[in-house]
């Protein structure tokens, strides 16, 4: 806060540290948002252990594993993009962001096939096949669709952030001396990864 001119013009105060702090606080709200769902999951898994066990057999572990690897890799490329821009290598940073976006696309495609297969087998909320199952299995699939669906929504939001950053790099608004928006978008993407790290074992690895 150095300027003390007194015009009606508002001085936007640049504070990268403050921006990151705000982003972290926002990430906490996202964590707790999913946290609410994890509480629901924990309670129902506690109450219906057997049914959760049975229902989980229907998920394809290989698909889940593939998506885990995709997300972990994309998280790495997003982190590297920050290093690239810090080192002044703007083209490499853009390339890494495009790779991240492509991985996100692959994740969504994979998810699309996984969900369609389930729906094709008659397992979706309110389907007769699902309603014929015990309550615990209905709850398992209800949670499966809600939690992975909300996660997929966050993947899409993350992609939108990255596309926005790519545009801003093009416009010269995100540069090697001012890249906090890229940092914050990467933080968001790591959060998406972080949540998947828990979703994967909780849904795909109940044996």
């Amino acid at each position: 806060m150095s300027s003390s001119a007194h015009t009606a013009v508002h001085h936007v105060h640049r504070d990268d540290y403050g921006s990151r702090m705000g982003m972290w606080l926002f990430l906490f709200t996202e964590l707790i948002l999913f946290g609410g769902l994890f509480i629901v999951y924990a309670v129902y898994r506690f109450v219906h252990q057997q049914e959760f066990h049975l229902a989980a057999q229907e998920l394809n572990t290989v698909v889940g594993l593939l998506n885990t690897v995709i997300l972990l890799t994309s998280s790495m490329t997003a982190a590297m993009a920050v290093t690239a821009i810090q080192k002044g290598n703007v083209r490499f940073a853009k390339g890494l962001l495009w790779v991240t976006v492509l991985f996100a696309g692959a994740f969504m495609l994979n998810k699309y096939f996984e969900w369609s297969a389930k729906i094709h087998h008659g397992i979706y909320p309110g389907s007769p096949d699902l309603l014929a199952k015990p309550e615990g299995e209905i709850l398992y699939f209800g949670l499966y669709y809600v939690m992975t669906g909300l996660h997929a929504l966050h993947v899409i939001i993350g992609v939108v952030f990255f596309l926005f950053i790519l545009r801003q790099i093009g416009q010269g608004k995100v540069t090697p001396t001012s890249y906090v928006r890229l940092e914050n978008s990467a933080l968001y993407w790591h959060l998406v990864d972080l949540i998947w790290i828990f979703l994967f074992p909780l849904f795909y690895l109940i044996h």
Binding site: D15, D16, Y17, A79, V82, T83, Q86, K87, E183
Partner: peptide, 8 residues
């Protein structure tokens, strides 16, 4: 302030 973060 405005500083470069740690470069990993």
């Amino acid at each position: 302030e405005h500083g470069h973060g740690h470069v990993v």
